[in-house]
Amino acid sequence: MFELSRYVTFGQYVNNDSILARMDPRAKLVCAILLIVLVSFLNTFPVFFLCLIFCTILHLASRISIGYILRSLKPFFLFLIIAFIFEVLFYAPARAPHWIWHWWFLGLSWAGITASLLTMIRVIFLYYLATMLTFTTSLVDLTDGLESLVSPLQKLGIPVNALVMVLVIALKFVPIFVNEVERLMKAQAARGLHFDQGNLLQRISKMALLLIPLFVSGFQKVKVLNVAMEARCYGSHRGWHRTKLRALHYKRFDLFALALTIVVCILLITVNILTA
């Protein structure tokens, strides 16, 4: 009843030691970002067919069972179908298309179906790529990769190290807060609160009873952690820098994967332009 910890499947890393899981997180991030950005601008059927071939190869390399991915996609598909119907019915391009059926602002046209279908396919590929990244990379690797990728920005005055420290601290507090919410819910139930009853206003005030103590405890922890971090020489003043124990090394496969991704990207762009 009050076992929140069972919902916390935070980070979905599958450690199966596949070549994708072993890749340097920097290379993996670059590839993923390149592909995600590129895919969000593709819009022809032939180019998506190419994508499908590429993703099949990617999937084989990840050695993750297709069933596992599909299960994580389950809630997604329902949304997708509803969104597809909406998109088709509300399709309204600048120039009126050839309507199959039309009523007020609702309409059904082949152009609309095609356009919506392309949007949906694009979204599925985006989802797949983002999921693949989280399935093959642990949170620590992700943060590390991110930090070292964007560290040149630090020289431009963008506080990258601060951003990474924010992430580290956030990850530290999540299990602590989950525990606290769990205890709060127990304490409130023990003192006679019914969680699933009441009108809108009562529901909001019950949520506030969990939310506000969470913030209070958070604010109080800030002071304490500040002392602890400064006592261990963490600084944020000008000229201060820290080094890292963890080291990342590019391997031959990482360079190959990068090169392959770039080739695929060029190929996709070309095909997209040719078939547009």
Binding site: I176, K221, M229, R232, T243
Partner: peptide, 22 residues
Amino acid sequence: DDQLIAGTVIDEVAFGPENLGL
């Protein structure tokens, strides 16, 4: 709980020396 910062034991122990810029 008030003073641990990192996610794993080794990262936590390394936190101080990392701050020293070693």
